[in-house]
Design a protein around this nucleic acid. Structure first.
Lengths: 223, 223, 223, 223
DNA sequence: GATGAATGAGAGTTCATTCAT
DNA sequence: CATGAATGAACTCTCATTCAT
């Protein structure tokens, strides 16, 4: 019974959060009306304030949840056994698609960083999300697939920056997901590879191709 | 006398635009109050409406002016006789600095694209600005400093995307202009240079195969 | 408890309507300020908008209510058993008195007919009110008190037109109700009577006078 | 030259008055914008204030001019040598047509009577207009075409009231001029003609008794 | 006299937040 | 816990009127 009670509460909180995400996404922060959020969550207006002190805290919760879910999704999207390049590819695809789906929430994120016009804080949930990329890159460096000289935060800016900008362009033109964006981005990463050239290239070819093919075979036999 | 009159009008319009730019930048679109803009422009509230039909048109004018000034500044920042690489470096520096100075206006730009919640139009002023980059790149390709295969819009996304993302990071951390961001970005462009090496060509084949395989995997994991 | 709640709501709506009627009547449509209406209804400004979407809908409600109440009052003012002439007399008196009391609301009625400058609709509540007159006249025709040739809408225009014009004159001169206006109007209706003259006149005299006297006696004994 | 000057001024004043009449008629008093009136009169906004102190005085001038023109038109519409009945018919037709054409100005007239919400004055121009009817009626009485007992202001209320009400109905239904309205009205006037019949006189006595009784009843039912 | 840019008080309306039930 | 009616501060925009040119 206590469990049922708690579950009911959590379901309500989740409903509010989902409704708020939708409305914030559609109308922006200032365009979103608390009444509309309550309506979509199927609760009374006052009820929202039982869970969140005010509109801004609701926004924070929405943004927080969004990035947490994004992190969860990113981790799920990455094949654990895959090569670093493959994982980057997967992450890039996942990120681009997510941005296209929820561009507005990303834009809105900056609003959640502010407390009454104060400067702006780092959001821990975004840190967490960024760490997914950093971990892959670090592994790449550790495995010597990427040069030791690679400055992660720099290449991270290229990675996320390019995807975000491309996503905006795609959304604006009402095009959908475009794989060439990913391909183009991934090519850039080649240059970060250590320059022991031909051997490495040959070795990389053989092993990676074989690994990829075996993964495909596995998946195909599963489905 | 007629000139004095016209000059006074233009000065007033400019004052309103400047005030609006500042206030929109500080408070965002919805946070900006018309009364505050009027106060800063040292005119009565009603006067603003003599020049701009409503808040949204004022926003459009602000955004429009911003990008036009940005284009003007970019052209001025580029050394005419310089190499393509040098010009890209100059443009990148100028762009990064501008974004750091006026990040909010860039964020706000998306709002100006909408007419009462309708989809969103391409802003001609942004097109003009982007053309500055395109022209340099095209010259690079023509001069064979860059490969003929270079797809300009893709590399453009990398260029602007990276700078914008970096600027946001820098602004958020309250750091200022960081030249290493530029250096890092410029290094990426090296790879677009034409290479006469067959090894590289062979290696590239391998990587293309990898990319193709990756795409297959991605699709399989999505289905 | 649910009843108390509903009653309280209805009381509030009624208070707003009454306040609005007064303010519209005193200041006209454009002169009326929503703040004043709210103040008189003893509610906050925003509360008015919970009941009526905007000023125009409030106006419509006021006008609607006015004519409905007028209809109710007219029906109440007419003695059921009385002769047609007597009923017309009662209706005319009631109408003249009402116009004197609420002339402004009648004038304002035309404004409620418009939806944002569009042509103008027939107000159903006015139709209903007019039907009171029509019913009496029809009965008069059926009872052969009035000629079969009587065109109701024409005589109706005379009836209401004369009373309205007289009311305006009386209000303007700050005179009150003037019974001679009614007498004069009623005399006009004599001519619509079928022309079988003297007999009819005599027969009418005897019975009507007796009826009227007995009604008076009844009422006097009741009060 | 002085004449030309004066003529130019008068032409400008006339242009303003004509423009104001049109705009007041289309948009009502509060809906009319001084800027629009100036635009239509082809003068600057400030110029209007050289001729009329404020909007209200302009309104007064418009209403004043309207009734003066109406009087002029009425006099012109009446055939000098015609019978009283014929003249009444002509006046009624002219009045109905004028009301249909300029109903809004008539409605607006009441607004011009007020000085800052104060009671309301008799407009001398309306008095003048009404005198046209009165003169015809007086002549009718003098010529014994109408009974000596005729109370002019009473019959005047019937005349103008009926026409005004009919005009409103016709305008509302977007019908045009309807001659049957005039015919119906004129028929009413037959009864004011002197009758030599004693029977009628006796019958009238009876009806007067009835009316007196009715008044008593009305008062009793109101108290 | 004529202009029209400038004014600024004031209006209608919205909506985040509260609190009695 | 939940409700939703009520609040009222705050905002955008209008427009009659003024006055420097």
């Amino acid at each position: 019974m206590a469990d049922t009670q708690r579950q009911r509460l959590e379901a309500k909180e989740e409903a509010i959060l989902a409704a708020a995400t939708a409305v914030f996404g559609e109308s922006g922060v200032d365009g979103a009306r608390m009444a509309e959020i309550a309506r979509r969550a199927d609760v009374a207006e006052g009820t929202v304030y039982l869970y969140y002190k005010n509109k801004h805290e609701l926004l924070e919760a929405v943004v927080d949840r969004f990035w947490r879910e994004l992190t969860k999704g990113a981790i799920a999207a990455i094949s654990e056994g895959a090569t670093v390049s493959q994982q980057l590819h997967e992450l890039a695809s996942y990120h681009l698609q997510s941005l296209i789906d929820d561009f507005k929430i990303v834009e809105i994120t900056s609003r959640a960083r502010m407390r009454h016009g104060e400067p702006g804080r780092q959001l821990p949930q975004i840190r967490e999300y960024v760490r997914v990329f950093d971990a892959i890159m670090q592994r790449g460096i550790d495995l010597r697939e990427f040069s030791e000289d690679t400055v992660i935060w720099q290449i991270r800016d290229v990675f996320y920056g390019t995807l975000e900008f491309s996503a905006r362009t795609l959304v604006l033109r009402e095009q959908g997901f475009d794989p060439t964006v990913i391909d183009n981005l991934m090519q850039l990463f080649v240059q970060y590879r250590p320059s022991s050239q031909t051997d490495n290239a040959r070795g990389l070819d053989a092993s990676e191709i074989m690994q990829a093919l075996s993964r495909i075979e596995t998946k195909l036999s599963q489905s």
